[in-house]
Design a protein around this nucleic acid. Structure first.
Length: 219
DNA sequence: CTCCGGGTAG
DNA sequence: CTACCCGGAG
């Protein structure tokens, strides 16, 4: 079922070129800034950071709290996100000489646990960093994934993170390139057809057209 | 104008 | 369950 969903989405939308970031540091910046916010707003904040010359963890730590908040303001939740960013950057500088890639490319489960121990980094943010920043084969679950799975009848609307992740892990080969592309396609599809309000099921939704109900089947 | 989507922490 | 924020939808 999930393999078929991938095939249909890929045929409909093609390759998505994710994650939109210049390097590992900028990727992790986006992962934290995009929590509960639309990507367009995150881009404004990242552009501000670039303009300010903040291109690595050490540079981020030279900003004072107020200045950092001003730069990331367009992404919302700027007070708590400024704290999260500073804690994350401090951890990277203290333990990895400021090189985020060294953490993200480390042994998967250990790196994931370490990320989760940091304030402001929950499962989705950690997994996004590991997949998109570290090239690791771990499937990212987000609200779009949850909504699409629920509407396909695969999971309850309130299925938790681990349940959804286990579903994808069991159905697919552990391949970072595939996981990367699949998640990007789900996001694309959620924005184009499977919107939260007024979904366009009858207006050419590729899944509505091609996926037959197959409850309980994870082929 | 109000309402809502969207991760994490407490 | 609520706080935290913005911008787009209705």
């Amino acid at each position: 079922m999930l393999t078929r969903v991938y095939e249909v989405l890929y045929a409909a939308y093609g390759a998505q070129h994710w994650w939109p970031a210049r390097d590992g540091f900028e990727m992790t910046l986006g992962a934290i800034l995009t929590q509960n916010t639309r990507w367009e707003n995150v881009e404004k904040a990242i552009a501000n950071m670039r303009s300010a010359g903040v291109t690595d963890a050490a540079a981020l730590l030279t900003l004072d709290e107020a200045e950092l908040q001003r730069l990331i303001r367009p992404a919302g939740f700027f007070r708590q996100k400024s704290r999260y960013l500073r804690c994350f950057a401090a951890h990277i500088v203290a333990n990895y000489s400021g090189d985020v890639t060294r953490l993200l490319a480390g042994e998967l489960l250990a790196a994931r646990a370490e990320l989760l121990s940091l304030p402001g980094i929950g499962p989705e943010t950690a997994d996004s960093m590991l997949l998109y920043g570290g090239g690791q084969a771990i499937f990212v679950i987000d609200a779009y994934t949850r909504r699409i799975c629920a509407r396909l009848g695969l999971t309850p609307p309130d299925a938790d993170y681990a349940t959804l992740q286990a579903l994808f892990s069991a159905a697919l080969p552990a391949d970072a390139k595939l996981f990367n592309e699949y998640h990007a396609l789900l996001v694309r599809h959620a924005k184009e057809f499977c919107t939260s309000r007024a979904p366009r099921c009858a207006a050419g939704c590729p899944l509505a057209q091609k996926i037959v109900a197959c409850p309980g089947c994870f082929c």
